[in-house]
C-alpha cells in the first residue's frame, strides 16, 4: 500500500508528565510511520508535544515524564524492548537527535573535535590520531565547515556554524533516522536556509530519513515531503505536503494555513481565536472543538480517531 517501506513505525505512543497538579498528558496515544529516505515534518504550536515525541522515540524521557504505552519499531527493531545498553548503541547509530536548543548546549570548554570525539567514544569507537583527524575533517566537510573549525571552541562559532556542528555530531555514526527539533528557530532566515540545505545534503549522502520538528509552515512547505500536525498532544492530520497546502483537511490545519502572512499580498491577519485545552484534564471529544468553526454535538463526546480518508491523507475529525 505505502509507496516505500516504513523505516520507523510508531503506534499508540502515550507520554505523561506526572506533576503535583496531576498527569500532563503531553502525547496522547499517537501513531505514525516514517518511510525510507523521506523528510517528515512535525508541526504544532509550543506545548503540543513535539519535543516529547522526539525524546520518547530515543527513550530519553526523564521523570516526572513516563512513556505510558507505545511501540516504536526502527528498521525491524522494537526499541522499547532493547536493554539500556542496546538502546544506547541504537542512539546515534540508528536514530540521532539534534535536540531543541542543542546548539546552545555544546560544552563551552571543549573544542569542536573533542565534542565529536565524545560522541564516537560513547559508542566504543576509538580511532587513532590520524584516522580520527580524517573522520572529523570528513564530518565537518559534509556539513559545509572548514577543517580548522575542529580546533575552535563553541563561543568562536556563529549560530549557524554551531548548528552545523550539532548536525555533524548527530551524523557521526551514520544514523538511519535524524530527528532535528527546531534546528533553526533561533537563527536568522539567511542562516536558516544554509542550515536546511546542509541538513538535506547530509540526509541524501546517508540515505537517511529525517523528522523535522518546527512551527514554521513555510519551512515545512520547502523542506519536507509529508507533514504531521500536532494539536494538544494529538496528531490531527498527516498529509503529503502538497496536499496539505492545497487542501488541508483538519479545521485546525485550515486555520493554521489561513493565518500565514504572505509576501505577495497585504490582507487582514486571521488569528485562531481561543486557546488550546489544558493537558491536565483532557476533556472527552475532539481536542480542537472549543476553537473549531465546524464543531458538532458529536465532537464533544466522541474523540475522532486518525483515519485515512483520502489516499495517503489521514485526519482526526468527524467531518470526514
Amino acid at each position: 500500500m505505502t509507496p516505500t517501506p516504513a523505516l520507523l513505525e510508531v503506534s499508540d505512543l502515550r507520554v505523561h508528565y506526572h506533576t503535583s497538579r496531576g498527569a500532563v498528558q503531553a502525547v496522547n496515544g499517537i501513531s505514525f510511520s516514517i518511510r525510507e529516505g523521506e523528510r517528515f515534518g512535525l508541526v504544532g504550536e509550543s506545548g503540543s508535544g513535539k519535543s516529547t515525541i522526539a525524546l520518547a522515540l530515543l527513550r530519553l524521557i526523564r521523570p516526572p515524564g513516563k512513556i505510558e504505552t507505545g511501540r516504536v519499531v526502527l528498521d525491524g527493531v522494537a526499541l522499547r524492548d532493547l536493554s539500556e545498553e542496546g538502546m544506547r548503541r541504537a542512539r546515534l547509530a540508528g536514530i540521532a537527535l539534534v535536540a531543541q536548543g542543542a546548539m546552545n548546549s555544546l560544552n563551552p570548554i571543549l573544542r569542536v573535535k573533542e565534542q565529536i570525539r565524545d560522541g564516537l567514544n560513547d559508542h566504543g569507537l576509538r580511532l587513532s590520531g590520524k584516522a580520527f583527524e580524517t573522520r572529523v575533517a570528513e564530518l565537518l566537510a559534509s556539513v559545509g565547515l572548514k577543517r580548522d573549525v575542529a580546533d575552535l571552541f563553541p563561543h568562536e562559532l556563529s549560530g549557524g556554524m554551531k548548528q552545523r556542528v550539532c548536525i555533524a555530531i548527530a551524523i557521526s555514526l551514520k544514523p538511519k533516522l535524524i530527528i532535528a527539533d527546531e534546528p533553526t528557530s533561533a537563527l536568522d532566515v539567511v542562516v536558516q536556509r544554509q542550515v536546511m540545505d546542509t541538513l538535506v545534503a547530509v540526509q541524501s549522502q546517508l540515505g537517511a530519513s529525517v523528522i523535522l520538528i518546527g512551527h514554521d509552515m513555510g519551512l515545512m512547505a520547502q523542506v519536507v515531503n509529508r507533514v504531521g500536525i500536532m494539536y494538544a498532544g494529538d496528531l490531527v492530520e498527516v498529509s503529503p505536503v502538497a496536499d496539505l497546502f492545497r487542501e488541508p483537511l483538519h479545521p485546525y490545519s485550515q486555520l493554521l494555513i489561513a493565518s500565514l502572512p504572505s509576501l505577495h499580498q497585504k490582507e487582514a491577519f486571521q488569528g485562531i481565536p481561543g486557546l488550546p485545552p489544558s493537558l491536565l484534564n483532557r476533556p472527552a471529544g475532539c481536542p480542537f472543538r472549543s476553537r473549531c468553526p465546524h464543531a458538532m454535538e458529536r465532537c464533544a463526546v466522541e474523540t475522532p480517531p486518525l483515519r485515512e480518508v483520502r489516499p495517503d491523507q489521514r485526519v482526526a475529525c468527524h467531518l470526514y
Partner: peptide, 16 residues
C-alpha cells in the same frame, strides 16, 4: 534580495 530569497514560502510550488 538575499533576505527575501531566504524566506521559505508557504507554498510548496514556489521553491526556495
Amino acid at each position: 534580495q538575499l533576505l527575501i530569497g531566504s524566506i521559505p514560502s508557504a507554498d510548496p510550488n514556489q521553491p526556495w
